[in-house]
């Protein structure tokens, strides 16, 4: 069953930037799906289309069987590229605020996650380092019991140990049948968790399939395949 169906999606922003030029892919339930590509390839635009933050210029997006724009689909939890939270509150208050509008939020789950990620609770958001903001955002997002997690650079600024912990959390969610879509520029990390992936360049799909197939057909690991394709596209 497809959790996400993207059909011939194009997006041109008001300023004329063509972020996506007709991409199509499906994400199957329970999989960990990676969206890769160099800067400006259209990764974030793809994620925001799935979320329903932006309106497709043409084509179609179905998230959990519904058109996500403009209202979003309630059973989705999103971690954006910028881990921006409300600067003026302390962490416990931020959790309270988040819980007031995030569907299916479990404070207990949040507590467990924040311990696993080694999050210090007493600080004001404004004083948090980049890494701690990421930890907090990830803990908030996964404390929501939803069907689909959409993550943009979910390990930004984290040290290797915590990064591994985040990957474990992602994997555990897949084990219980949740779907995770995520974008990262750290390929070695993606290689550790993803089942399926698309590789984007300049708004088009260069590869769409499983990681296993990619390795088998190229006899290369992910980083090598990625470089090969991105360069190949330049010829």
């Amino acid at each position: 069953m497809s959790v996400i169906e993207v059909k011939d999606l194009s997006k041109t922003y008001k300023n004329g930037v063509e972020a996506l030029k007709g991409i199509s892919f499906n994400v199957t339930e329970g999989s960990i799906f990676a969206i890769l590509g160099p800067n400006g390839a259209g990764k974030t635009t793809t994620l925001k289309s799935i979320l329903g933050a932006i309106k497709p210029t043409s084509g179609e997006v179905l998230t959990l069987g519904k058109i996500p724009f403009p209202n979003g689909v309630k059973k989705v939890s999103f971690v954006p590229e910028e881990k921006s939270l409300y600067e003026w509150v302390k962490i416990p208050e931020m959790v309270k605020i988040f819980a007031s509008f995030a569907p299916n939020f479990s404070p207990k789950k949040f507590e467990i996650l924040s311990k696993r990620l080694n999050l210090t609770m007493k600080r004001k958001i404004g004083e948090l380092s980049q890494g701690n903001r990421t930890k907090l955002y990830v803990a908030l997002a996964f404390a929501q019991d939803v069907k689909l997690y959409v993550l943009d650079e979910p390990t930004w600024g984290l040290d290797p140990i915590i990064r591994k912990e985040v990957l474990d959390i992602v994997r555990e969610n897949a084990i219980v049948g949740k779907t995770v879509v995520y974008s990262s520029h750290i390929l070695s990390e993606v290689e550790e968790v993803c089942d399926e992936l698309i590789i984007l360049k300049e708004g088009k799909i260069l590869y769409n399939g499983t990681l296993d197939k990619l390795k088998e057909s190229n006899k290369l690991n992910l980083s090598e395949s990625f470089l090969e394709m991105i360069k190949g596209g330049e010829k």
Partner: peptide
């Protein structure tokens, strides 16, 4: 500040 992404998707636009 890009905190709008906390709300988008978790609440509908009308909400």
């Amino acid at each position: 500040k890009r905190t709008i992404y906390l709300l988008i998707g978790r609440m509908g636009r009308w909400e």
